[in-house]
């Protein structure tokens, strides 16, 4: 299992997009896999909330015929929280402050999501073979 590669992706995304403050990757059931978050944030709780929120958004997209869910974004007066589905197995949370350029975030996140998805699937496949 390559936690280091996952950590590099998360750190790289924070360095690449101005305004990202924290990132976390969790399994689809809300268990935290890795978190690059400040000490003031409860990463385990964030992962659980993200899974629940994405699940509700996924059901809403299915029930209303909106197709496959891609992301949800919660906006606050002090920033935003973007929740991305990583395939069918995991999710990624990106927290940003008020200055974050969301268009750029969505653009830069796609390659990172693909790489993180590949990391997770490769590890899971190797584990099943073992």
């Amino acid at each position: 299992m390559d936690h280091e590669a996952l950590a590099r992706e998360m750190r790289g995304l924070r360095e690449q997009v101005t305004g990202i403050t924290d990132t976390a990757v969790a399994a689809a059931d809300g268990l935290l896999i890795a978190a690059d978050t400040a000490e003031t944030i409860d990463a385990e709780g964030l992962a659980a909330i993200a899974a629940a929120g994405l699940g509700i958004a996924r059901r809403a997209a299915e029930a209303t015929g909106r197709g496959t869910l891609r992301k949800t974004v919660a906006y606050g007066s002090h920033g935003c929280a973007a929740f991305y589905a990583v395939g069918d197995t995991a999710l990624m949370v990106v927290l940003g402050d008020e200055g974050i350029d969301l268009d750029r975030l969505h653009q830069e996140t796609q390659p990172a999501l693909r790489r993180i998805g590949a990391l997770l699937s490769v590890t899971a496949t190797a584990d099943r073979k073992a």
């Binding site: 268990l31 935290l32 896999i33 890795a34 069918d88 990391l119 997770l120 590890t123 584990d127």
Partner: peptide, 20 residues
């Protein structure tokens, strides 16, 4: 030393979500 990345469950434990 850079920022610390918290580790949670192993990636190997990740399974596809249960269908709706």
């Amino acid at each position: 030393g850079g920022t610390t990345v918290t580790r949670g469950v192993p990636v190997a434990g990740v399974r596809p979500r249960v269908p709706s």
